[in-house]
């Protein structure tokens, strides 16, 4: 494969300092995630899954090692460059959706487009298409408080894909949902991967959710413990 991996991690380390004590969280992580992959990151609580995901997404800083994501050496970027890079390259899906409560579904999805040079008309047609894709064309004017958890997460997914980023990061995207809603979300994420070709990295505790990914990585005490499931070709 000549193509550069979406995520290339080399000897990545991260530790927290707490009152003079150094708590290592990630030790010497080396990992490639090919473009178009859909990785589930599993592991016990406190193993460093969220920390690793946050580093990949460029919202936290590593202590050492190399981190190339979507073609950028993000350890080397300053705060402003990193923010621009995130706006262009990363879509975020959070456990608690993190929608702006004062904005409608439509406006929430439109939000990231304000950082692009798109005209109002272009923004609107894009937002409509994204909400259509997540099946909420009829809920555009609803506020988050008027939507179910599953619907809110779908709005969040529309927001995550609206700028057409290379990778999507999701930290327990179904952690706060019931089974049926979780299924909807997982199906939607599968489509983002297969239909839109998004590289997805998802942290999850739920083996059922993990099974929907192409590959599963296990993290334990800050170290990767091999691949549990090879990327099966042609999975939908």
């Amino acid at each position: 494969m000549s193509e550069e991996p979406a995520v290339a991690i080399r000897r990545l380390t991260k530790a927290y300092r707490r009152g003079g004590q150094v708590v290592p969280v990630l030790n010497d992580i080396t990992l490639d995630i090919p473009a178009g992959d859909y990785v589930a990151l599993m592991g016990p609580s406190g193993s460093g899954k969220s920390t690793l995901l946050n580093l990949i997404a460029g919202i936290d800083r590593a202590d050492g090692g190399e981190l190339r994501v979507a073609g950028a050496d993000i350890n080397m970027l300053d705060e402003a460059e990193l923010a621009d890079w995130r706006a262009r390259s990363v879509g975020f899906i959070f456990q608690f959706y993190n929608l702006m409560p004062v904005l409608t579904a439509f406006e929430n999805v439109e939000l990231p487009l304000l950082l692009t040079g798109l005209s109002r008309g272009e923004r609107h047609s894009r937002v409509e298409a994204a909400l259509e894709m997540v099946g909420l064309a009829d809920r555009m004017e609803h506020y988050p408080s008027e939507l179910s958890g599953g619907q809110q997460q779908r709005v969040a997914i529309a927001r995550a894909i609206i700028t057409d980023p290379v990778i999507l990061v999701a930290d327990e995207p179904t952690g706060d949902l019931d089974r049926a809603s979780a299924d909807d979300i997982l199906a939607l994420m599968g489509r983002l991967n297969t239909e839109l070709g998004k590289t997805i990295i998802m942290v999850t505790h739920d083996p059922y959710a993990a099974q929907r990914a192409r590959s599963i990585r296990q993290l334990e005490k800050g170290e990767l413990r091999g691949t549990l499931k090879a990327a099966p070709e042609g999975k939908s």
Binding site: D84, R86, A87, R88, F92, N98, M100, L111, L115
Partner: peptide
């Protein structure tokens, strides 16, 4: 949390 979310999305 909202400010953090906006920052994650790339707002300065």
């Amino acid at each position: 949390a909202e400010y953090a979310t906006l920052k994650a999305l790339g707002f300065g």
